[in-house]
C-alpha cells in the first residue's frame, strides 16, 4: 500500500496530540506515558524483526541490556558524555544484533526463539560475574546521569524519540524493503525463489531492530537513572514487549504503539484494584481473548470498524 495524504494527516494529528498532552493531563499520567513510550520503542524494535520476518526473538532484553549497560558504564565509570556514550551503545547493540543473527542463518521457529532466550540469560549471568566493579553485579547500578528533570521534560524526550523511531520505521516499511521483509515471514523459500538474498534482508532487519533496541535501552536507562539486572533480563519484561506487539498488531508500526499504551495503562489502572502480580492474570486473559478473536490485533479491529462504518454510510 502506498503513501496517502491521510496517512500523513493521521501522523500529524497524533504528533500534535501527544505534544499537547502535558497541558491537559497530570504528572502521574505523564510518567505512565513515559513508560508506555519506551515500551512502544521496544515493541517496534521487536516487530521490525519478529513481526515482519517471523523470526520470533525471545532475546530482546539482551539487546536492550547491551544498549543500557554500555551507556551506563561509559557515563558512570568513565565519565564519558552521553553525546558519545549513547551512539557507542547503539553501535555495540548492533554488533550484538549480528550475534543474534548467526543462529537465524541456520534455524528458525521455536529453536530460534530458544537460542535468543539463551542470549538473554547468558547476559544476565555475565553482568553479575564479569567485572562487577563495572556492571554493579547483582545489585546493578544507580546514580546514572539522567537527561531530563521533571515528568513533562521526560515525557517530551521519550515522545520525541518514540515518534521519530515510529515515523522513520513506518516510512521504511512502506518501501519495497518492508514488503520483502514481510514476505520472508510468509514464505522465506519463495523470497529466495524470487531472486532475493534472504540472508542480507534478515541481516538488515536484525541490525535495524538492534539499533532501535539499543537506542531505546540507552535512553531508558538515562531516564531511570538506575539499572537492575533482575528487572531488565526478566521474562515478564520480555513478554510485556511481545504481548504489546501482538496485541496491537504485528507487521504494522502503529500496532505495537497501540499495544504498548494499552498494556501500560491497563496495568496501571488495575494497580489500585489488584496491587500484586494478579494484575498479570487480567492482562493475560485480555491478551488471550483478543488474540483468539483477532490474531491481527487491535489495529485490525479498528480497521474493520472503519470499514463497517464506511459500508454503513454507502449502503
Amino acid at each position: 500500500m502506498g503513501l496517502r495524504w491521510f496517512h500523513f494527516a493521521l501522523w500529524g494529528g497524533l504528533i500534535a496530540g501527544m505534544f499537547l498532552l502535558p497541558q491537559v493531563v497530570s504528572n502521574g499520567t505523564l510518567r505512565t506515558m513515559i513508560f508506555a513510550n519506551y515500551l512502544a520503542i521496544f515493541a517496534i524494535s521487536w516487530d521490525v524483526l519478529s513481526g515482519r520476518t517471523g523470526y520470533v526473538s525471545f532475546g530482546h532484553p539482551f539487546l536492550i541490556g547491551i544498549g543500557a549497560y554500555t551507556t551506563a558504564i561509559l557515563t558512570k565509570r568513565f565519565d564519558i558524555p552521553v553525546e558519545i556514550s549513547i551512539p557507542v551503545a547503539v553501535v555495540f547493540t548492533m554488533i550484538a544484533g549480528l550475534l543474534v543473527l548467526l543462529p537465524a542463518l541456520r534455524i528458525r521457529g521455536s529453536y530460534f526463539a530458544l537460542v535468543t532466550l539463551a542470549f538473554m540469560e547468558l547476559l544476565y549471568q555475565l553482568v553479575q560475574v564479569i567485572r562487577p566493579d563495572l556492571t554493579g553485579g547483582t545489585r546493578g547500578m544507580s546514580g546514572i546521569q539522567t537527561l531530563t528533570r521533571g515528568a513533562a521534560n521526560g515525557y517530551y524526550l521519550s515522545t520525541a524519540l518514540m515518534l521519530a523511531i515510529a515515523v522513520s520505521m513506518w516510512l521504511l516499511m512502506k518501501t519495497r524493503l518492508g514488503t520483502a521483509l514481510s514476505a520472508i515471514g510468509m514464505n522465506e523459500e519463495s523470497v529466495r525463489g524470487s531472486g532475493l538474498s534472504t540472508t542480507r534482508l534478515k541481516a538488515f532487519a536484525f541490525l535495524t531492530s538492534a539499533m532501535i533496541a539499543g537506542l531505546g535501552g540507552a535512553f531508558y536507562v538515562h531516564y531511570l537513572g538506575s539499572l537492575a539486572p533482575r528487572a531488565l533480563f526478566d521474562i515478564n519484561f520480555l513478554f510485556t514487549i511481545i504481548v504489546a506487539a501482538l496485541l496491537g498488531g504485528t507487521s504494522t508500526i502503529i500496532g505495537p504503539m497501540i499495544g504498548a499504551f494499552f498494556m501500560t495503562f491497563l496495568l496501571e489502572y488495575l494497580r489500585p484494584v489488584l496491587p500484586g502480580a494478579e494484575r498479570y492474570f487480567v492482562y493475560g486473559a485480555i491478551a488471550l481473548l483478543l488474540y483468539m478473536y483477532q490474531p491481527k490485533g487491535i489495529v485490525e479491529l479498528v480497521k474493520r470498524g472503519f470499514k463497517n462504518l464506511s459500508k454503513g454510510r454507502t449502503a
Partner: peptide, 14 residues
C-alpha cells in the same frame, strides 16, 4: 512486486 525487486537493499528503499 517481490519477483520484480532488485536484490539490492538501497534500491528497494529508494
Amino acid at each position: 512486486r517481490v519477483g520484480l525487486m532488485p536484490d539490492d537493499i538501497r534500491r528497494m528503499i529508494f
